[in-house]
Design a protein around this nucleic acid. Structure first.
Lengths: 224, 224
DNA sequence: TTATAAATTTAGCCTTAACTAAATTTATGA
DNA sequence: TCATAAATTTAGTTAAGGCTAAATTTATAA
């Protein structure tokens, strides 16, 4: 069952991973959301979803959406483990910058063998989180469900620690790291006026302004 | 010109690399040799060769064979550099065994970015040869032309040092390393009787018997 | 030199994973 | 409730890169 992933096409693996990510709310994933997220047209998504359903990796209720089966989720988590381990390895061992590791990992995740995966995990001492703060699933497909709040929802006066940032956009990551918003950074919210669309923050002794949109990609642990 | 390789399909890259390897004699490469080496049918090779010719990466004289253009050779050498750097990195840094690195590198070579290539080369201190003794092309596409003789051609009494072994077969590599025939190993040829089809060797203080076929995959520097 | 064998190419088909346009189903607002 | 809009699926193409069978070219041996 474990080598199931190996015989799947890269495209099929990408669909499984994307369905997993989009299903975070528990609800079935719509064809449109899936297509948009993968950058393909809706009929392409429909076609692949039917293939995945035929392989018992997903359940497809026509016009209603897709859900992963346990087998499909298993493979999605394997891909996510690969992705996050590779990001961590590239950043920590090879010194690849924070904002570039996502795109690299996107390619590498599909060709990583179990053996090299194990060697990387060992070299990193079995890390629990990747450089952006996302939890790395275990070999057995267990994943921590960290539940941090978006920085965008914090009130003025809140003192928080950054725990995770979304890693999809290299440009956003570059900006966040310039402002000092990286995992473990302590932040004080000086002013939070949703109407203005910006937050005033104090990070590492500096006053900073951050838009609400990027603040929705930063997840924090609240202290007060 | 350097990002040409990135826009080429994995299949096209594999054909270029294989043509380069088969052309070692200087003569044009036949369709059959190319097809056999890649494990595809002859018409598939013909079709790809025509595509490569249309891209000015190869010259195709119908019924006569293929040759790489300088641009095609450039890309082939880039793939070979990737392949051999990855083999070296996997073996030396991640501790992947000698006989497995070839198959891993075969997949990795196509997705390695210039940046990660550079980081790996640096981590390895810009190695000149891979773990099997094959020369690693430079970033500029220069490659050393080591010219060692096959162990199979040595006479009784020859004292030699192993410089390179062919890496295509994991099984062969496992056997050779059991016998101690790895790069840098000093070897004395005790008995060489082509009629028998075996060589008697002394390697690391042990008497060993090796068939002529595997001995053709071991290349040595002769001392006497 | 010529018949036959071997190698190569052409022709036509298959699969995967995209696409657009059209049909169908579900949701929504008057 | 019913017409219309939005989402989804179906139908039919396309491009890669394989394949087999048939045609063509080149090599070989009588």
């Amino acid at each position: 069952m474990d080598d199931m992933a190996l015989t799947l096409s890269t495209a099929a693996q990408d669909y499984l991973k994307t369905i997993y990510h989009l299903a975070r709310g528990g609800a079935p994933v719509t064809t449109q959301a899936l297509a948009d997220s993968l950058g393909v047209a809706a009929p392409s998504a429909t076609a692949m979803v039917k293939k995945l359903a035929a392989l018992n990796l997903a359940r497809h209720e026509p016009y209603r959406g897709v859900e992963l089966t346990p087998a499909g989720e298993r493979i999605a988590l394997e891909m996510i483990r690969h992705h996050r381990l590779i990001e961590t390895y590239l950043a920590e061992v090879l010194g690849v910058s924070w904002d570039k590791v996502h795109d690299e990992a996107e390619r590498w995740e599909h060709i990583l063998s179990e053996e090299v995966e194990a060697k990387m995990a060992e070299a990193l001492n079995h890390p629990s989180h990747d450089p952006h703060g996302a939890p790395i699933p275990t070999v057995d497909g267990e994943i921590a469900h960290d539940d941090w709040a978006p920085l965008a929802q914090m009130q003025a006066g809140a003192r928080v620690t950054v725990r995770r940032v979304e890693d999809e956009s290299a440009e956003l990551l570059r900006h966040l790291s310039e402002v000092g918003l990286v995992p473990s950074a302590d932040v004080e919210v000086l002013r939070a006026t949703p109407a203005e669309g910006v937050l005033q923050l104090r990070v590492a002794g500096e006053n900073r302004t951050l838009g609400i949109a990027p603040a929705r990609s930063v997840f924090v642990e609240q202290h007060s």
